[in-house]
Design a protein around this nucleic acid. Sequence first.
DNA 1: AAGATATGCTTAATCGTTTAAACAAAAAAA
DNA 2: TTTTTTTGTTTAAACGATTAAGCATATCTT
Lengths: 343, 343
Amino acid sequence: MKKKQVSLKDIAKEVGVSIATVSYVLSKGKDSRVSDAMSEKIREVAKRLNYQPNIIAQSLKSGTTNTIGLILADISNPFFANLARVIEDEAAKYNYTVIFGSSDEKATKSKQLIDFLSSRQVDGFIIAPSEGSEDQIHALQQQGIPVVLIDRFFPNISTDYVIIDNYESSYRVVAELIRSGHRRIGMLAYTDGLYHMQERIRGYQTVLSDNQLVEAPEWLGKISYTNGKKEIEAAIDSMLAGDKPIDSIFFATNTLAIHGLKYLGKLNKKVPDDIAVVSFDEGEAFDFYYCPLTHVRQPLEEMGKAAVQSLSNRIKNPKIPQQAICLSAEVVVRKSSSTTTSK
Amino acid sequence: MKKKQVSLKDIAKEVGVSIATVSYVLSKGKDSRVSDAMSEKIREVAKRLNYQPNIIAQSLKSGTTNTIGLILADISNPFFANLARVIEDEAAKYNYTVIFGSSDEKATKSKQLIDFLSSRQVDGFIIAPSEGSEDQIHALQQQGIPVVLIDRFFPNISTDYVIIDNYESSYRVVAELIRSGHRRIGMLAYTDGLYHMQERIRGYQTVLSDNQLVEAPEWLGKISYTNGKKEIEAAIDSMLAGDKPIDSIFFATNTLAIHGLKYLGKLNKKVPDDIAVVSFDEGEAFDFYYCPLTHVRQPLEEMGKAAVQSLSNRIKNPKIPQQAICLSAEVVVRKSSSTTTSK
DNA sequence: AAGATATGCTTAATCGTTTAAACAAAAAAA
DNA sequence: TTTTTTTGTTTAAACGATTAAGCATATCTT
């Protein structure tokens, strides 16, 4: 029942000619020296038999698969999902197929994915690297496999990357809270040592000290990626409980914001009257939140396009110098950071 | 600079033995007749050179890629995104890689994707078929390529599929509106002729007539997939404008619900007091909506698992009889369908 | 000791495609 | 007419892995 796909061989047999001739006609078109009559006939038979070239065989021969491996933290997170969609569409323009994988921020999983995709001979990688994956990235470079990092990068190894200015964005969005009169500003961030998170924290801390606001230790809540929800609630509790309870909070990612906002709801805190809020990222989820959020809007479209562009450049010419792209993000000011009216 | 991946040949040369011997050791393990000393040596060299088998070559030889093609309407739609994630994880358990594509509900795009994925020699397909793609599905079957349809199916061709009982779910969720005292119930659906949409409409119409409610023509708004937003607003306007303005509305998909709810917000209609609402699907987006929605909760997890399971069965044994799986969905009753208090 | 069996490895074909090189026949140049 | 060039097609090797079959040696049988 399982009919084999038709191959060049089948066409060759049908026409009564060698496989090579068929290949020349079908892959070279006018550039081959095959006679017009023969070309015509071959093309007709190919069409009749519904010939589709076997890309696996082409890949084996050419050593190139026109496929790129995309490793993200978590594809069910809207930030990454949207980024993935942009990358997929953009890659299609360059005639690349994308194969995805979610690392769940674990270096072990990221290693598995890299090995897996490498053995599938992807032509290059776009990776949002997880903590502790420097070696993996470095190893890829050693093997001469093109890699572009996205969203995060490692300052101590030289790679192509596309990021945003996390320090600057963080500074500006928190400055917005200060501008509107808030003085006791908490921040929820992840514990990991990834550079982009460090930069977001640095932005927060710098803008505080630039404004002579002395940060209380419990204001900065560090959450581990794995059991986030519990820790988020505990962190918010202690920010609100201290002798200097916060009047506003900065969420360093959209996931932190979603859980954080839900918890504030449970505590019956009204935004922005009881507590003002600013956040990184934006998602459909916030469209229905009762108070529009002041947030850092990352240029996903540009990031995705730049990453595919860079990767394509490097695949075409591995010797080009490092491409380090840092985009700036927009701070969108909405109601959630506005001045408390009742105080 | 571009170092070629190490192959069996490289190991063979290094050890001073034939390629076949290396292959036997690495792929057959203890079952080969290669001496322990030699096996040891080969394994050590393979490890030292960081050998990774070339899956492209294996695929060419075996004629199987351990890859499945997944074609969905739109991967940026949370319903499909979540379904995709379930399928990806489940497929991984069967040692399958998933390659995605979004058809955007267009038969032409779906055709392209099928051709593209076929030439990449996927072992099978999971497809949420778009309108007018019967021929494509049928052609795949003719070629003996395993296909499992998901979310929708075609009643006139015999395929494996996994769906939910759309008629039943629709009937039950609208019945909930009637139970809580609503009499003038609108519905927003898509125009397309796909079976699942027809069934949802049939459920709505049947429950109305079963309750002696005579439907006004403007109560059923049919929206085209492409320029949805405009049409949604127009349809809602006319539902509210007639001499029998609706007191409640049923959204046939989550996308319709999102746009519909936003528009109701613009019109300053409060849910459920001004208008009650029930919907198909659920998403993060609704978590922050002020009024929890009564909705049909599709068993995504089960659907995805069943689809992968079915496909795997058929790949293993193409001759098994048709697998038609119809799951039942849960109607989650929340506040949005509750009785109007002020009337 | 002679034949049978087991052991350990190699040869060669195969998957479907590409492409340099070879070759025969026809056309052009000498 | 002979040589050269062009035209149209075929041969064969290659990509990397798998695997049936082959072929020496070595080890058992009896």
